[in-house]
Design a protein around this nucleic acid. Sequence first.
DNA 1: GACGAATTAGGACGGCAGTCCTATTCTGCG
DNA 2: CGCAGAATAGGACTGCCGTCCTAATTCGTC
Lengths: 192, 192
Amino acid sequence: MKTRDQILESADQLFYQQGYEHTSFSDIAKAVRISRGNFYHHFKTKDEILHAVIDLRANNTRAMLEEWESGHEDPMARIRCYLQILLTNGSNISLYGCPVGTLSSELAKLDHASQGDAVGIFTLFREWLGKQFSLLGCGSDADALAMHVLAWSQGVATLVNAFPDEAFVLREVNHMCAWLQARVSDPGKAGL
Amino acid sequence: MKTRDQILESADQLFYQQGYEHTSFSDIAKAVRISRGNFYHHFKTKDEILHAVIDLRANNTRAMLEEWESGHEDPMARIRCYLQILLTNGSNISLYGCPVGTLSSELAKLDHASQGDAVGIFTLFREWLGKQFSLLGCGSDADALAMHVLAWSQGVATLVNAFPDEAFVLREVNHMCAWLQARVSDPGKAGL
DNA sequence: GACGAATTAGGACGGCAGTCCTATTCTGCG
DNA sequence: CGCAGAATAGGACTGCCGTCCTAATTCGTC
């Protein structure tokens, strides 16, 4: 495996676990077991690493979304795949929050130039969810529904990070699935 | 106004806008227009300032909750007060996110000793909301409903920070109010 | 007005951050 | 083998961080 990729992989993980600003070159160097000075050959600045990490995450996200799409014919089942991450990634989320949301929030506070790129990952989910709702015949509500699902899952991630409680996540995911079912089968009754 | 209080007020604001770690002593000194060395007389460490800021926020929160409680007889109206902050504080939230959620997330990543205190502010809202749901006759569901409302609002705050869009917040708050009404008047139909 | 305590200013300090340079080692290819 | 270019190690450099000290000033009280 190329050193550059190892750096990216470690940076990706450390940025998630410790935050971007709190992660130093030394931290990454220690993780990759490489000398500090060697970085300069692969990345000229810390911002450049961040940019590459966001790119990596975006590509991974795209691949995941495509996988869900090719794995399920039913758009509802696809959306459930999205909701399931809260459970399958539960332990990480309760420790570090959602990788997309926390990075976006941190960069917003730092007024960092890459904040837009981080939001871009949100946009991938937003448009993908919107597409699924369109396929379900939600028409002009599709984007609003996508935003609603995004917000819901973000909130659960934030809360479980504050109050680690697996039962809470399970309850909320079930609630979301039930709402999804009701909303699609009878748009009037389920609100929004 | 006492210097100590001015420091706290500025630190409170800067921690919110820039994050705890990204805010330096110099930043606060500049805001209060005080010499850097003077800090040591009021606070021995940065952690001590953070602790005092969290205390301040907790007290402000308690006061706000009591105000809502004494201002409205109807528990539903009280809960709506909570939901309204998303609108009245909309511009700050879209710029910096929720003060409670973002601080809690940051401290979780820093593995900071005060993270528990920050979560304590969440707990204030949680228990207050739970109390209102109890008064509405939700019995053993009260805490779950409180967590649900908390998660919902957190998610909206995170999303509007990523996608500044006032219409989205308005839509979600209306949705929440409608859900609240439905859930209380007919627990079975509205789910959870 | 004088004195002791509280407050303030200014800067010293050690440490680590991000950046950048240079000398050395590795690697692929004629 | 020999050589050019890539990759690596180690450390120098500047600058800011949090912390802490000391001297000067202000302030309340007798």
